Computed example of a mutant assay.
Amino acid sequence: MIRLFIPHDLAAGAELALDHAQSHYLASVMRQDVGAQVALFNGRDGEWLSVVTAVTRRAVALRAQSRSRPQTMGPDLDLIVAVVKRGRVETIVEKAAELGARRVRLALTERTNADRARVERLTAIATEAAEQTGRLDVPAVLEPVKLSKLIDGWDAGRRLLFCDEAGDASPILEALSPQAGGEPWAILIGPEGGFSPAERERLRGLPYAVPASLGPRILRADTAAISALTLWQAALGDWASPTRLGGAP
């Protein structure tokens, strides 16, 4: 069944009008007509089975009928990644959504080569990935911020998995094995040029940071992000235990 993320509140009998892009997708691309069923979600009210009630040149209208799934949330997990080339950062955002990250924070490091990111475009990619994967929320994609500023304002209650390519950190599964799941975490991926010595020294000195190695090979940022997210989910996230689903947004 087609799934769409919408900003509107969802309740039985709610009459909903899709925006132009979603109306075009539903009517012209997927060729859905009056009576077609569509699953809708908004990140707050769960997933609702809905029916198309009107198809016009201006918009597609639907009526919410019944809730098919209650609202649940995955782990409180941020992915922090240095801004890289457009194609790679788009892949990172797409896979972060598929792998259950709740937020993607873009960072500017001392060796970051790119300093711009089209957050609106990245949000659209995250939304499409959420629709396709069956999750009931869309990960937030935040504007780039200097890494030093991000650390200055850090909540010490959120653990930070620092993926360190220097080679002297513990293997990631070993580093995660004594850690606790069910609490806020973030994963930090550096730029393709690596962290500077000063950045690495500061990160290693943070009491909430967990340095970890992703193996003997140097990985590109997108590969590193996918690998770290996968391993974290397997060790501490909702791959390890389905009971960790359902936390508050």
Score class of each variant (00 low, 15 high):
residue 97 A to R: 06
residue 221 A to K: 00
residue 107 A to Y: 03
residue 158 R to P: 11
residue 14 A to D: 05
residue 118 R to E: 15
residue 18 L to Y: 10
residue 164 D to N: 07
residue 173 L to T: 07
residue 183 E to R: 13
residue 102 R to T: 07
residue 100 G to A: 15
residue 181 G to K: 06
residue 45 D to M: 12
residue 227 S to D: 08
residue 118 R to A: 15
residue 23 S to Q: 10
residue 136 L to C: 03
residue 133 T to E: 10
residue 28 S to Q: 15
residue 98 E to Y: 14
residue 197 P to N: 06
residue 17 A to E: 10
residue 103 R to E: 12
residue 122 L to Y: 10
residue 93 V to N: 07
residue 129 A to Q: 09
residue 189 I to T: 02
residue 142 L to G: 03
residue 125 I to E: 13
residue 136 L to H: 00
residue 217 R to W: 06
residue 200 R to K: 14
residue 63 R to A: 11
residue 233 Q to Y: 12
residue 224 A to F: 02
residue 191 P to N: 04
residue 60 V to F: 01
residue 231 L to V: 02
residue 229 L to S: 07
residue 84 V to N: 01
residue 239 W to E: 13
residue 205 G to D: 12
residue 186 A to G: 15
residue 98 E to M: 12
residue 170 S to P: 09
residue 6 I to Y: 02
residue 130 A to L: 09
residue 47 E to A: 07
residue 241 S to R: 15
residue 9 D to A: 15
residue 231 L to T: 00
residue 28 S to I: 09
residue 238 D to Q: 03
residue 234 A to Q: 11
residue 151 I to C: 04
residue 124 A to H: 04
residue 162 F to P: 00
residue 36 A to F: 12
residue 15 E to G: 08
residue 157 G to I: 07
residue 203 L to V: 00
residue 207 P to N: 08
residue 151 I to V: 15
residue 46 G to T: 04
residue 151 I to M: 10
residue 191 P to R: 08
residue 50 S to E: 00
residue 174 E to I: 11
residue 125 I to P: 03
residue 134 G to C: 06
residue 214 L to I: 12
residue 33 D to H: 13
residue 14 A to M: 14
residue 149 K to Y: 01
residue 128 E to T: 14
residue 37 Q to E: 13
residue 115 D to P: 01
residue 147 L to K: 03
residue 68 S to F: 02
residue 166 A to V: 11
residue 220 R to D: 09
residue 63 R to P: 04
residue 247 G to Q: 12
residue 231 L to S: 02
residue 112 T to V: 02
residue 150 L to T: 05
residue 136 L to I: 01
residue 222 D to A: 13
residue 62 L to W: 05
residue 24 H to F: 13
residue 193 G to M: 10
residue 128 E to Q: 13
residue 187 I to A: 14
residue 117 A to S: 08
